[in-house]
Amino acid sequence: MFTFLVTFLGVLVLYLLLVWGSGDAGSAYWAIEEVLAGFVLALISAGIARAILGKAENSRMFLKWPLFLIYVPTVFLWNLAKANVDVAYRVITGRINPGIVRIRPGLKTDLGRTILANSITLTPGTLTIDIDRKTGDLFVHWINVRDTKTDEEKTRAVCGSFPEWARRLSE
Protein backbone atom coordinates (compact mmCIF):
# COMPACT_ATOMS: atom_id res chain seq x y z
CA MET A 1 0.00 0.00 0.00
CA PHE A 2 2.82 2.35 0.89
CA THR A 3 4.66 1.75 -2.39
CA PHE A 4 1.41 2.19 -4.32
CA LEU A 5 0.80 5.56 -2.70
CA VAL A 6 4.38 6.70 -3.25
CA THR A 7 4.34 5.74 -6.95
CA PHE A 8 0.93 7.36 -7.42
CA LEU A 9 2.10 10.66 -5.94
CA GLY A 10 5.39 10.59 -7.85
CA VAL A 11 3.72 10.02 -11.23
CA LEU A 12 1.03 12.62 -10.46
CA VAL A 13 3.62 15.28 -9.59
CA LEU A 14 5.60 14.50 -12.76
CA TYR A 15 2.47 14.72 -14.92
CA LEU A 16 1.36 17.98 -13.32
CA LEU A 17 4.84 19.39 -13.97
CA LEU A 18 4.53 18.38 -17.63
CA VAL A 19 1.14 20.08 -18.13
CA TRP A 20 1.90 23.16 -16.02
CA GLY A 21 0.64 26.16 -17.96
CA SER A 22 -2.15 24.36 -19.79
CA GLY A 23 -4.94 26.27 -18.06
CA ASP A 24 -6.74 29.53 -18.79
CA ALA A 25 -4.73 32.72 -19.08
CA GLY A 26 -4.19 34.52 -15.83
CA SER A 27 -6.21 32.46 -13.38
CA ALA A 28 -5.56 28.72 -13.23
CA TYR A 29 -2.33 27.21 -14.46
CA TRP A 30 -3.75 23.70 -14.82
CA ALA A 31 -6.71 22.72 -17.01
CA ILE A 32 -9.17 20.49 -15.12
CA GLU A 33 -9.12 17.84 -17.88
CA GLU A 34 -5.37 17.49 -17.56
CA VAL A 35 -5.56 17.05 -13.79
CA LEU A 36 -8.19 14.29 -14.22
CA ALA A 37 -6.05 12.60 -16.90
CA GLY A 38 -3.09 12.80 -14.52
CA PHE A 39 -5.09 11.04 -11.78
CA VAL A 40 -6.11 8.21 -14.12
CA LEU A 41 -2.60 7.76 -15.54
CA ALA A 42 -1.05 7.83 -12.06
CA LEU A 43 -3.49 5.15 -10.87
CA ILE A 44 -2.66 2.90 -13.86
CA SER A 45 1.11 3.31 -13.59
CA ALA A 46 1.07 2.85 -9.81
CA GLY A 47 -0.86 -0.40 -10.30
CA ILE A 48 1.73 -1.65 -12.79
CA ALA A 49 4.87 -0.42 -11.02
CA ARG A 50 3.86 -1.74 -7.60
CA ALA A 51 5.35 -5.10 -8.48
CA ILE A 52 8.68 -3.51 -9.45
CA LEU A 53 8.97 -0.97 -6.66
CA GLY A 54 7.52 -3.49 -4.23
CA LYS A 55 10.61 -3.52 -2.04
CA ALA A 56 10.01 -0.94 0.66
CA GLU A 57 13.72 -0.04 0.76
CA ASN A 58 13.50 1.29 -2.81
CA SER A 59 10.46 3.48 -2.25
CA ARG A 60 11.89 4.96 0.92
CA MET A 61 13.85 7.50 -1.14
CA PHE A 62 10.62 9.38 -1.83
CA LEU A 63 10.36 10.18 1.87
CA LYS A 64 13.83 11.70 1.71
CA TRP A 65 13.06 14.28 -0.98
CA PRO A 66 13.94 17.30 1.22
CA LEU A 67 17.41 15.80 1.66
CA PHE A 68 17.69 15.41 -2.13
CA LEU A 69 16.79 19.08 -2.48
CA ILE A 70 19.70 19.91 -0.19
CA TYR A 71 22.15 17.37 -1.65
CA VAL A 72 21.79 17.96 -5.41
CA PRO A 73 22.18 21.78 -5.61
CA THR A 74 24.97 22.02 -3.00
CA VAL A 75 27.31 19.05 -2.49
CA PHE A 76 26.67 17.42 -5.86
CA LEU A 77 26.76 20.53 -8.02
CA TRP A 78 29.88 21.85 -6.30
CA ASN A 79 31.72 18.56 -6.91
CA LEU A 80 30.48 18.49 -10.53
CA ALA A 81 31.94 21.98 -11.07
CA LYS A 82 35.26 20.89 -9.53
CA ALA A 83 35.25 17.77 -11.73
CA ASN A 84 34.78 19.88 -14.86
CA VAL A 85 37.64 22.23 -14.03
CA ASP A 86 39.76 19.13 -13.36
CA VAL A 87 38.82 17.53 -16.70
CA ALA A 88 39.43 20.83 -18.51
CA TYR A 89 42.93 20.97 -16.98
CA ARG A 90 43.64 17.40 -18.08
CA VAL A 91 42.28 17.95 -21.59
CA ILE A 92 44.55 20.97 -22.04
CA THR A 93 47.72 19.55 -20.47
CA GLY A 94 47.15 15.85 -21.28
CA ARG A 95 48.56 14.89 -17.85
CA ILE A 96 46.98 11.60 -16.70
CA ASN A 97 47.93 8.77 -14.34
CA PRO A 98 45.03 6.29 -14.66
CA GLY A 99 44.21 2.97 -13.04
CA ILE A 100 41.33 0.79 -11.85
CA VAL A 101 40.92 0.44 -8.09
CA ARG A 102 38.55 -1.52 -5.87
CA ILE A 103 36.84 0.41 -3.08
CA ARG A 104 34.66 -0.73 -0.17
CA PRO A 105 31.99 1.84 0.64
CA GLY A 106 30.06 -0.74 2.68
CA LEU A 107 26.54 0.25 1.57
CA LYS A 108 23.76 -2.28 2.07
CA THR A 109 20.87 -1.20 -0.17
CA ASP A 110 20.65 -1.12 -3.98
CA LEU A 111 19.43 2.47 -3.84
CA GLY A 112 22.43 3.64 -1.84
CA ARG A 113 24.82 1.90 -4.22
CA THR A 114 23.11 3.48 -7.25
CA ILE A 115 23.28 6.96 -5.74
CA LEU A 116 26.96 6.50 -4.84
CA ALA A 117 27.90 5.07 -8.26
CA ASN A 118 26.14 7.84 -10.19
CA SER A 119 27.52 10.53 -7.89
CA ILE A 120 31.14 9.46 -8.18
CA THR A 121 30.85 9.13 -11.96
CA LEU A 122 30.06 12.83 -12.18
CA THR A 123 32.68 13.98 -9.68
CA PRO A 124 36.43 14.65 -9.88
CA GLY A 125 38.56 12.06 -11.64
CA THR A 126 36.49 8.93 -11.04
CA LEU A 127 34.26 6.67 -13.15
CA THR A 128 32.41 3.60 -11.85
CA ILE A 129 32.93 0.52 -14.03
CA ASP A 130 31.43 -2.44 -12.21
CA ILE A 131 30.00 -3.63 -8.91
CA ASP A 132 30.43 -6.76 -6.86
CA ARG A 133 26.83 -7.58 -6.00
CA LYS A 134 27.57 -9.66 -2.91
CA THR A 135 29.83 -7.28 -1.02
CA GLY A 136 28.89 -3.95 -2.64
CA ASP A 137 32.48 -3.25 -3.72
CA LEU A 138 32.80 -0.80 -6.60
CA PHE A 139 35.44 -0.96 -9.33
CA VAL A 140 36.40 2.60 -10.12
CA HIS A 141 38.51 3.99 -12.95
CA TRP A 142 40.61 6.69 -11.33
CA ILE A 143 42.24 9.20 -13.67
CA ASN A 144 44.91 10.40 -11.21
CA VAL A 145 45.97 7.51 -8.94
CA ARG A 146 47.59 8.56 -5.67
CA ASP A 147 49.46 6.29 -3.29
CA THR A 148 47.31 5.07 -0.41
CA LYS A 149 48.15 2.58 2.32
CA THR A 150 44.85 1.21 3.69
CA ASP A 151 41.48 0.46 2.17
CA GLU A 152 39.73 3.19 4.19
CA GLU A 153 42.26 5.75 3.02
CA LYS A 154 41.71 4.69 -0.58
CA THR A 155 37.91 4.87 -0.31
CA ARG A 156 38.26 8.29 1.29
CA ALA A 157 40.55 9.51 -1.50
CA VAL A 158 38.21 8.25 -4.25
CA CYS A 159 34.76 9.26 -2.96
CA GLY A 160 35.29 11.96 -0.33
CA SER A 161 32.07 12.46 1.66
CA PHE A 162 29.77 10.65 -0.80
CA PRO A 163 29.33 7.35 1.10
CA GLU A 164 27.94 9.23 4.11
CA TRP A 165 25.56 11.16 1.88
CA ALA A 166 24.44 7.99 0.08
CA ARG A 167 23.80 6.34 3.45
CA ARG A 168 21.85 9.36 4.66
CA LEU A 169 19.75 9.41 1.49
CA SER A 170 18.96 5.72 1.33
CA GLU A 171 18.78 4.27 4.84
Partner: peptide, 13 residues
Protein backbone atom coordinates in the same frame (compact mmCIF):
# COMPACT_ATOMS: atom_id res chain seq x y z
CA UNK B 1 43.18 0.85 -19.57
CA UNK B 2 46.21 2.43 -21.24
CA UNK B 3 49.12 3.79 -19.18
CA UNK B 4 47.53 2.20 -16.12
CA UNK B 5 49.61 2.14 -12.95
CA UNK B 6 47.20 -0.19 -11.11
CA UNK B 7 44.44 -2.61 -12.23
CA UNK B 8 42.50 -4.36 -9.48
CA UNK B 9 39.61 -5.40 -11.70
CA UNK B 10 38.35 -8.98 -11.55
CA UNK B 11 35.35 -10.68 -13.16
CA UNK B 12 32.34 -10.84 -10.85
CA UNK B 13 28.72 -11.60 -11.52
Amino acid sequence: PEQAVIDEYEEVD
